[in-house]
Write a protein that binds this DNA or RNA. Structure first.
Lengths: 214, 214
DNA sequence: ATGTTATTTAATAACCCTATTAAATTTTGA
DNA sequence: TCAAAATTTAATAGGGTTATTAAATAACAT
């Protein structure tokens, strides 16, 4: 039972690279074996099925993404801080996992079975102390104070996620045209992050912080 | 040479449905033939290759999407009108082609060869009287006047497209949770369209039209 | 009506793929 | 050292795919 854990890990790592790059359907166990430099049957020896291997990666990435939803909502911060933190967190994690947004969307859309994972997560976090409930409370408190326009937490989150996700999904196309070097890409992403913060802050708040006025 | 044009058209129509629903890779010529109700070889008899058949659909949809970019910029309208028209146009066309955004993104990302089509389009529209140049002029005029914050046309367009596209890309997931009936979906899309208009107008303009104040 | 052309079909070549098998090899522990 | 266990391999079953073939059928024009 003393597995060759190095090889086992290398297969997982290589599978992750290929699945994230090309998706489940376009990646074969033969591709994975070729890139690892081992026999194709070994991939099945360690992980039995392709679906099995995929799911380990999928669930890891899914949980990674979801863990950051809460990240912005620690302590008793203002909504402004929460929004800024949310955008910062996701830009940071996605800047070093640039194909993760498309990967996740692709797999969730192409294979409805995988949405079950999403349902289960949502149901597990549907209690009154959930992220969403706390976010909604925070938002409605600001609406009452008149510091932001009437909006629901889910709408605000959708706005932010739309802007963040599309930045990374469209990056391959955008960079073909306008960005050559890695430095340019990083600068672009930094710019985009600030633009999104500005757009959301100005688009939601009625009283403008000096940082976003003009 | 008197082709069975009815069948030829039915193959094209069926291929469009399947390609848009499942994408190029996940759709086989056997699938298409089965849904049409004809022999698989007939698909190749009329269109020779799968790539050929696909490209007719892809380019049609691509041109459809691109034709609407200009649609908002007719006449000598104000930037506000152009923005509203842009969002209206795309929401209208995409509301009756809900999987078109994901289809297009998927094919452009998965097959870099197809991005050539995008390059060619961009290059053909790179003249000084192009949509982008006219849009940039309009935007910078408003920046000069101080009616909007400093922003480039490309950034503004990216913001709008992000918000619009993600609405439709995330719709299958969102509707699993929150929307059951077709009426609910249509109402949601209408809501989303207004939210995007509000966010963009408030997020960009410094002098707020009464419609978007608060 | 019949020869010509167009359409449709079944069959198949030549490649993919996943997963399993049994046999070969290496590693390990007594 | 050597047998048992773990790992790795080649081979293959059984399924899929696209595209082409030749033969069969249908449509058409004279």
């Amino acid at each position: 039972m003393a597995k060759n854990e190095q090889l086992e890990a290398k297969i997982l790592q290589t599978a992750e690279e290929l699945f994230l790059e090309k998706g489940f359907d376009a990646t074969s166990t033969t591709d994975i074996a070729r890139k690892v430099g081992c026999n194709q049957a070994l991939v099945h020896y360690y992980y039995r099925t392709k679906e099995n291997l995929f799911f380990q990666i999928f669930s890891k990435k899914f949980n990674l993404l979801m863990s950051y939803i809460n990240a912005g909502l620690q302590g008793t911060d203002s909504l402004e801080q929460v929004i800024q933190r949310f955008i910062d967190f996701y830009f940071n994690i996605l800047s070093s996992n640039r194909n993760l947004p498309f990967f996740m969307i692709n797999e969730l859309i192409m294979n409805p079975e995988r949405r079950r994972y999403l349902y289960d997560f949502m149901n597990q976090h549907a209690d009154s102390n959930s992220y969403y409930q706390r976010m909604e409370d925070l938002v409605q408190k600001e609406v009452q104070k008149g510091t932001i326009r009437p909006i629901t937490a889910i709408t605000l989150i959708l706005d932010m996620i739309s802007l963040i996700v599309f930045t990374f999904v469209s990056l391959p196309m955008y960079s073909d045209f306008f960005l050559q070097s890695e430095e340019e890409i990083q600068y672009y992403l930094e710019q985009r992050k600030e633009e999104i913060k500005t757009l959301i802050m100005r688009g939601v708040f009625t009283i403008h912080d000096s940082q976003f006025n003009l």
